[in-house]
Amino acid sequence: MPSKALSSTTLPAALLALPGVYHPQADTRLLAAALADEDLGSGTEVLEIGTGTGALALHAATRGARVTAVDVSWPAVATARLNAWLHRLPLSVLHGDFEARTTGRRFDVVFSNPPYVPAPDSRPPSRGPERAWDAGPDGRAVIDRICADAPGLLLPGGVLLMVHSGMCGAEETVDRLAGAGLAAQVTATASVPWGPVLRSRRSWLEQQGLVAEADEREELVVIRAQRS
């Protein structure tokens, strides 16, 4: 499996972030590298699900794409709008659930760095910074929704790019997308050190069988799916 370099050269150099908004990290950079391989020329209709600071949406906008970015967090929406203004880039940033805000629309490219960290709570949080990463006991609360909705969001020939942790089950994501009629595969991986969130819940992750006792690194995966 190819491994993408975690270079930040494809992301905007200067980004502001309001308190509680997810800063671009290794998963953001891995997805940016995958996005750089896609055709985002003038007129391409693009959707980002969960924009955070807007880093990836702005990257797409610099290449001429018409970008819609959606986030359930008001601080994230405000941050992305502010960064778009600072970089003088056209970006439509919408607040709310991606299903509700995209009704009746289809896109050439959809990409997402969704919440994917397994968490003890059965439901993802409704507020706070944890909203950007906690995603239920198997980490798939948002991933599975994107898999189910992807065919309806994509134009013919459209592409979905999604990054998440290997502990969430890359094969399950590929299988779900394939079951929805898309051609899907893992196109990039990267191994990164555990961050503070995973370290803080090591015992629980071990009890769930999601990690081994000696694990100190997390595998990230990018999954690409295309509609025929």
Rank of each mutant, 00 (worst) to 15 (best):
M1P: 08
P2S: 13
T9P: 01
L16K: 09
A17K: 05
D37H: 12
L40W: 03
V46N: 03
A55G: 05
R63P: 06
V67W: 00
T68W: 01
V72A: 07
P75I: 14
L82G: 06
H87Y: 13
L89M: 15
L91V: 09
L94R: 13
G96L: 14
D97R: 04
F98G: 02
F98S: 02
R101H: 08
T102E: 11
T103G: 06
R106W: 11
V109M: 07
V109S: 04
V110Q: 01
Y116H: 13
P125A: 14
W133F: 14
D134Y: 05
P137M: 10
P137L: 11
R145I: 08
I146H: 00
C147H: 07
G152R: 06
G152D: 11
G152E: 07
L160T: 09
L161D: 00
M162C: 12
V163D: 01
G166E: 07
M167E: 02
A170Y: 01
A170Q: 01
A190Q: 01
V192S: 11
P193A: 13
P196I: 14
L198W: 01
R202M: 12
W204M: 04
L205D: 02
E206F: 04
G209S: 10
V211F: 03
A214H: 15
R224G: 02
R227F: 08
